[in-house]
Design a protein around this nucleic acid. Structure first.
Lengths: 106, 106
DNA sequence: TTATCATATAACAATATGCTTATATAAGCA
DNA sequence: TGCTTATATAAGCATATTGTTATATGATAA
């Protein structure tokens, strides 16, 4: 199986984004389930703007994508990202989420 | 094969360190060969203190180790780091170094 | 409509980061 | 010893990062 090759510059920018506890955990969550902003605010116990700003960075890098459903915007990992397999490889080292947080908005 | 499980906090701090083009490339180099500081200064075309400061961060995290040989201090990846397999997995996505830089000091 | 809820964005402040220059330390050599 | 080379550390500065509060936007519901 041929492994993707990632340029150092590009890899560094992805690692920098994931090099933040909140964003890393967020990516891991969004890699398993879609989540609306309010669920993330609830989960991380952070202000809504703080969460939105983290999501913005992940979105700008193409790591997550959004889908509007009625008044909510759901985010999820962008599995079409050209380096998704790399990201997946990193996230695979994280343990499973402890409490399987229930969907809040829906 | 059982894969190491890494706490989000700890993973984030490693990713943050590797989320810098210089340190990432440096880790990849040191994972293949020992290098003295002067070689890194030469390679990265950066000031000696700048290189030393990056090395310090990597060393503080236990990612690299140093060995003095006469007047030179050689750095190399610390393969005994408890999360070395994780770091290795990340670095494995980088392409091979183009020009196989020759040893400068020795 | 207008009010409300969900989210984004702007402006700002505190702190962190990554250089720079200057200086300290430690080893080798004349 | 005193000079030189290799490296580390300290101090300072510019910029980046990450949160805060205030406000804008967009959708739903009354």
């Amino acid at each position: 199986m041929q492994q993707t090759v990632v340029r150092a510059e590009e890899m560094a920018s992805i690692l920098k984004l994931l090099g933040d506890r909140t964003r890393l955990t967020m990516m891991a969550m969004l890699n398993k389930n879609d989540r609306c902003v309010c669920e993330l605010v609830e989960f991380f116990q952070m202000s809504q703007p703080a969460i939105s700003q983290h999501l913005r960075k992940l979105k700008d890098a193409g790591l997550v994508k959004e889908t509007r459903k009625a008044q909510w915007i759901f985010y999820s990992a962008n599995k079409d990202h050209s380096l998704y397999s790399f990201i997946q490889a990193i996230l695979s080292y994280l343990p499973e989420e402890r409490k399987e947080t229930t969907q809040l908005c829906e």
